[in-house]
């Protein structure tokens, strides 16, 4: 299982949304999203996610 983390730094990013949706179709991908554009963004959780991810995609 490939752990993929998307970090969103811009609101309403259509390309990121498209890539996330396509990757979620793959059964061997576990896709997680850290949305830093919202006030309640959890940076401590993000740090843990970064250390446990195979692929980190920053948008």
């Amino acid at each position: 299982m490939r752990q993929i983390l998307h970090i969103l730094t811009q609101p309403n990013d259509p390309l990121a949304a498209k890539i996330i949706a396509a990757q979620r179709q793959e059964p061997d991908h576990q896709v997680r999203v850290a949305d830093l554009t919202v006030p309640e963004a959890d940076y401590h959780a993000l740090l843990q996610e970064i250390f446990s991810s195979d692929s980190i995609e920053v948008w």
Binding site: R2, K18, I19, Q23, H29, D54, S55, I56, E57, V58
Partner: peptide
């Protein structure tokens, strides 16, 4: 775009 998604997933880091 589907191939891009697969390409991105194969890389450790993706930056825009």
């Amino acid at each position: 775009d589907v191939e891009l998604a697969a390409l991105a997933a194969r890389h450790n880091h993706v930056a825009r």
